[in-house]
Amino acid sequence: MSLTPYVPLVVLFGLATVFAVFSVTIGPYIGPRRINKAKLEAYECGIEPTPTPPGGSRFPVKFYLTAMLFIIFDIEIVFLYPWAVAFDSLGMFGFVEMLLFIVTVFVAYTYVWRRGGLDWD
């Protein structure tokens, strides 16, 4: 069995490792250091890290909006998998069709972006 098809994969793993090690080690040396309170607190996705009252509490509607946008754009990816698997045999036709599909998703994305759906405040 020839291992040639796996060579790019191994190269990719190598590159990823190099990049990860590089980013982690270089950070403390060249990055600016500013200490503030938020950095010392527990990370809770932007919510004030206070203990929630019994029975649960409300949190801003912005989280729901972001979650909903995530769901809808995330699930569109599901169509890319079968296309990627059959990419070779689908050829140009499949590529163009997929491009059109992504364009329609992009139309929705532009609307969300222009309407401020991606702004936090």
């Binding site: 139309v107 532009t110 609307y111 222009r114």
Partner: peptide, 10 residues
């Protein structure tokens, strides 16, 4: 309809 969404955006 897609063009309409773009029009809504721009």
């Amino acid at each position: 309809a897609c063009v309409g969404i773009l029009a809504e955006a721009f």
